[in-house]
């Protein structure tokens, strides 16, 4: 039973040059207790999807179509007040760069304390204790001292731990982690991923993990949705998709990864460029770059079709018995 379902989500940004269609029909499901990876390159709509779920899109953005079902409630139909009760409390968010996501003028303790106060009418002393426990649970040394420390006094990894503590404060059911390790160096990345996995398991939180790193998806997620130009092109169990990608774009992405055996040879690239946001796309957005492109790819949008129990792809190759 899916905890969070995104259906046919369309989002566009109004610009002076016309509407930029950032999401062109996103579909995916997040099951309870899963970590779902949203992968894709810059501009494919990963972050916009995350923000849409939180209903924290910029003012010039508009959801034109679709539903976001959370426990069978369409978040897009909630009033701002009802949505406010969900933010932080039931769905929380972690950001890419903790240095900019933490308020520079308030102590770590104070920021967590504020979140606790917003969600929990407990007395002050109890809240203080809860703050200390949160700081300890994300592996920050000396929580008592951390209470009084400002973000700039922490390292990047410590900042991200503090940010994670903040997002956990109200015990949410879902965490949207928007590239939480991209701004960190590799060893710290591993620690933060480890922490996220542990917390997710211990607290039975479901996570949407937004990243552009297939390696992270492989070690962290159970499910993955591959995004291209505002659509999901392939999704399913991580093992199945990484072992045997079916969409030409996913195949290209995997082939482009450097491997130990390919030392000395050129890295494979996908020819061409991602379509610009202002372009009208009639058929499959990947068609101009696809080596298997067919006539109808330019005219019709391929729907997501099931290939196996936990594997779907949106490509005419898999509908057509001739090419199947």
């Amino acid at each position: 039973m899916a905890l969070l379902t995104v259906e046919n989500l369309h989002v566009q940004f109004k610009t002076p040059f016309g509407a930029v269609r950032a999401l062109r029909g996103i579909d995916f499901e997040l099951d309870k207790g899963d970590i779902l990876g949203l992968v894709g390159e810059t501009g494919c709509g990963k972050s916009v999807t995350g923000r849409s779920i939180m209903r924290l899109l910029d003012e010039n953005a508009e959801v034109t179509e679709g539903r976001i079902l959370f426990n069978n409630t369409d978040l897009l139909r909630l009033s701002e007040k009802e949505m406010h009760a969900i933010r932080g409390d039931r769905i929380a968010m972690i950001f890419q760069d903790p240095a900019t996501a933490l308020n520079p003028l308030f102590t770590i303790g104070g920021q967590i304390y504020d979140v606790l106060r917003a969600h929990n009418p407990a007395p002050a002393e109890q809240r203080r204790k809860a703050t200390l426990e949160l700081l300890a649970s994300v592996g920050l040394p000396d929580p008592a001292q951390m209470m009084a420390v400002y973000p700039h006094q922490l390292s990047g990894g410590q900042q991200q731990r503090a940010m994670i503590a903040l997002s956990l404060a109200a015990e949410p059911e879902v965490i949207i982690a928007d590239e939480p390790t991209t701004a960190l160096d590799v060893t710290i990345q591993a620690q933060i991923l480890d922490l996220l996995r542990t917390l997710q398991r211990e607290r039975a939180i479901s996570v949407i993990f937004i990243t552009h790193d297939l390696g992270i998806v492989a070690e962290t997620c159970q499910k993955v949705a591959v995004l291209y130009a505002g659509r999901v092109v392939e999704q399913g169990a991580v093992d199945a998709i990484l072992a045997d990608p079916q969409h030409p774009y996913s195949r290209g992405l995997l082939a482009a990864l450097p491997r130990p055996g390919s030392r000395g040879t050129d890295l494979k690239v996908i020819p061409g460029n991602v379509p610009a946001g202002l372009e009208r796309i009639a058929g499959c957005a990947f068609a101009p770059r696809c080596e298997f492109v067919m006539d109808r790819c330019h005219r019709l949008q391929p729907p997501l079709v099931s290939l196996a129990a936990e594997h779907q792809a949106a490509c005419f190759l898999h509908e057509d018995p001739v090419h199947g």
Partner: peptide
């Protein structure tokens, strides 16, 4: 700034966000 988005995502009230943070 991102920390304002983060504060909104954490469910802080508009009053606290505007007049404090």
């Amino acid at each position: 700034e991102t920390y304002i988005t983060a504060a909104r995502a954490a469910g802080l009230s508009r009053r606290v966000i505007l007049f404090k943070l």
